[in-house]
């Protein structure tokens, strides 16, 4: 399906790198490295240079912690969105938020995409996307409260649950007025899931692709990779790329990542193996 992310459209077979930009002092991977707005802006410049099509700006870490008010969240992300919009007109700007008020504010500042990692916890977020002309990411969390860790959650079939919840969320977005080509679904690895759930979702990602909605995967350095390989944060790139390859073969469209270059190479290689992308330059044996 052709993707329309706010001001930008992409071909049917395009795969997109969504680079994570944290305006937080405490996110698990970078531990506040881009907390200062100038540092976050430098991170945007870096990932744009690396070829990222999308930046995903977040003002609140996913894990439990100090409560961040709506006003504080807006103050962390809105000005940065406006600054990035002015500097990079052709870049897709996503904001990682579950709050409708924040969604409306960032859309007014130039955001193209609202990445709701918490599965529609705020039912008015779809209205903010529709009114702001933005696309939306519909995730599956199993209904958990934002910023909580999974605790003894079980599913009869986690893939069926992810499909049911994300497509229902997509329908709500559609009903709210978000265009069909601007709705993306995300199984949300680790969110409301144990490691076995995330592995199962990775193995069966093709079933989500078969729904016809474009699929986003957010795999980067997550705990399911760490638990699977018994590796801490900082040593999970190879495992992340292995999971990325499986999702790419299944046909995922958007990859939310810390490491843009490595992920782009992985996705391009798999896309060529799958016959969706020609090799860059082929001459071996063809001279």
């Amino acid at each position: 399906m052709t993707l329309r992310l706010g001001r930008h459209t992409f071909d049917d077979d395009a795969t997109l790198m969504m680079a994570i930009v944290n305006r937080t002092p405490d996110s698990f991977y970078d531990q506040g490295a881009t907390w200062a707005e100038d540092k976050a802006f430098e991170r945007v410049a870096l990932v744009v240079g690396q070829g990222a099509e999308i930046v995903d700006i977040g003002g609140i870490k996913a894990a439990p912690g100090v409560e961040i008010s709506e006003a504080e969240e807006r103050s962390r992300v809105v000005d940065l969105v406006a600054r990035v919009r002015a500097a990079y007109p052709s870049l897709v700007i996503s904001v990682d938020t579950w709050r409708a008020s924040v969604g409306a504010a960032v859309c007014a500042a130039g955001a193209d995409l609202l990445n709701d990692a918490w599965g529609g916890a705020d039912p008015e977020l779809v209205d903010a996307a529709a009114e702001g002309g933005a696309a939306i990411v519909c995730t599956h969390t199993g209904g958990v409260t934002p910023r909580t860790r999974p605790y003894r959650i079980e599913y009869d079939d986690v893939v069926a649950a992810a499909i049911a919840d994300t497509t229902a969320y997509a329908s709500r977005a559609l009903d709210a007025g978000v265009p069909r080509e601007s709705i993306v679904i995300d199984p949300a690895h680790d969110f409301g899931k144990n490691t076995f759930h995330s592995l199962e979702l990775t193995h069966r990602l093709g079933e989500m692709v078969d729904t016809g909605w474009p699929v986003l995967v957010s795999l980067s350095n997550k705990d399911f990779v760490g638990e699977t390989l018994d590796l801490p944060v900082g040593s999970r790139l190879v495992g992340t790329l292995a999971a990325t390859a499986v999702c790419a073969l299944a046909g995922a469209r958007i990859y939310r990542v810390h490491e843009v270059v490595e992920t782009r190479q992985t996705v391009d290689m798999v896309s060529s193996i799958a016959g969706r992308r020609p090799p860059c330059r082929a001459i071996r044996g063809l001279q």
Partner: peptide, 9 residues
Amino acid sequence: EYAGLEDPV
């Protein structure tokens, strides 16, 4: 059938 993204020839 052997075209890549770039043309080597």
